[in-house]
């Protein structure tokens, strides 16, 4: 039903998006918590840096990543010299590009829900004997779960649609970095590729619908569990 190239692109897209979500969830929670709950020197700077990928053209982000993480770049060079790791033009690099683009969406969603958590409930929990860790796990985390879910969905979706930063940073290598949008772009550039391109569009639509359906079910379950 699907050609091997299409299957490759589909699986690659899903894997990149899944890894992207997994990679940015923990730091996203930390940054969201810092921005929502803490006052510190340089907070505006951090806020600006986090949101940069939302306002810059994705190609610019991809280029910056290439400059920083390429084998000759300051970070990429050190990674290569020290650990022999290079992410440029690899699957991992595609995840990095997606992660950077999706990070602000994850942070915003979690931050917003953190800001709406009733601090009076947290005060009540402390008086009932909960230290900071238990307070976070038993009260804060369950109450921001919908925000975390939203953040994950947004990040997953952003990663599925990611094009500019990916193609600039890790190029368009079949089976390694050629996700659905890149495969679609390749098809569209090929003479007589219209049918192939349309098939890829159909696959993209199907994937998007499935993802939306899944998130809707998850959100509803969560809401029932939270009793709100």
């Amino acid at each position: 039903m699907m050609t091997p190239a299409e299957t490759d692109a589909l699986w690659l897209s899903i894997r990149v998006a899944a890894w992207c979500v997994v990679a940015i969830l923990p730091p996203g929670m930390v940054v969201a918590w810092l921005l929502a709950r803490r006052d510190f020197y340089g907070k505006n700077l951090l806020n600006g840096a986090v949101h940069l990928p939302l306002v810059l053209p994705p190609v610019a982000i991809g280029y910056l990543l290439l400059v920083l993480l390429g084998r000759n770049g300051p970070i990429g060079g050190w990674l290569y010299d020290t650990f022999g790791i290079s992410v440029a033009f690899t699957f991992e690099g595609a995840v990095v590009a997606s992660a950077v683009m999706a990070f602000p969406l994850m942070v915003r969603a979690i931050r917003l829900s953190l800001e709406t958590v009733d601090d009076r409930l947290e005060a009540a929990a402390r008086i009932l004997g909960s230290g900071p860790l238990r307070l976070f796990v038993t009260i804060t985390l369950p109450l921001i779960a919908p925000g975390i879910l939203t953040g994950c969905i947004l990040a997953f979706a952003r990663s599925l649609g990611e094009f500019g930063a990916t193609i600039t940073f890790v190029s368009n290598i079949a089976g390694e970095t050629r996700t659905l949008p890149l495969a679609l772009y390749t098809m569209a550039q090929t003479p007589d590729g219209e049918t192939g391109a349309l098939r890829l569009v159909a696959i993209s639509v199907g994937l998007a619908m499935l993802a939306l359906l899944g998130s809707e079910i998850a959100a509803r379950r969560l809401q029932r569990r939270l009793g709100v």
């Binding site: 009076r120 005060a123 009540a124 929990a125 009260i139 369950p142 569990r225 009793g227 709100v228």
Partner: peptide, 13 residues
């Protein structure tokens, strides 16, 4: 300390 608040503050979840 036991503290009973005017607004109950029961944990909704």
């Amino acid at each position: 300390v036991g503290y009973v608040f005017q607004d109950y503050r029961l944990f909704p979840h």
